[in-house]
């Protein structure tokens, strides 16, 4: 039991270290999630435009400063608006976008249940 616990603590510590540092793989993931504003649909990672080159430099700088993914996205969103990030953020404006499918599933399920129940009673 003690061995399992110590293994778990070691694994947790290694993962914590991994989480606190953004790897090169993460940098590419960040760049793939940022929209090139001059390229109509391309990500910064895929684009060779002037704007994309600048953003690549800025993201590299922010990673060097020790910023997290969330902080980097937050910085770019504060400058360019939510449109710059491909992944839609969960906030008050986008609440319906995120939860409507689940709400539709739930209420749809309720309606079907009510209809079936009525049919059985009849």
């Amino acid at each position: 039991m003690k061995k399992i616990l110590s293994y778990l603590i070691i694994i947790f510590l290694f993962n914590s270290q991994a989480i606190s540092k953004i790897s090169n793989k993460d940098e590419i993931e960040i760049l793939k999630n940022i929209r090139c504003l001059v390229c109509q649909g391309q990500s910064i990672a895929d684009s060779n435009s002037d704007f994309a080159q600048t953003i690549k430099l800025v993201v590299k700088d922010k990673i060097g400063e020790g910023k997290t993914k969330k902080e980097i996205y937050g910085f770019l969103i504060s400058k360019y608006g939510e449109w710059i990030v491909f992944d839609t953020q969960i906030n008050r404006k986008n609440f319906l976008l995120w939860f409507l499918p689940y709400l539709s599933l739930f209420f749809g399920g309720l309606i079907i249940f009510a209809i079936l129940k009525k049919k059985r009673e009849n």
Binding site: L37, V38, D50, F51, Q53, T54, I55, L57, V58, D61, L76, K79, Y80
Partner: peptide, 13 residues
Amino acid sequence: HDGRSSVNFGIYG
């Protein structure tokens, strides 16, 4: 000269 400062102003072109 490298466009880095322009990002602070939300410039993209």
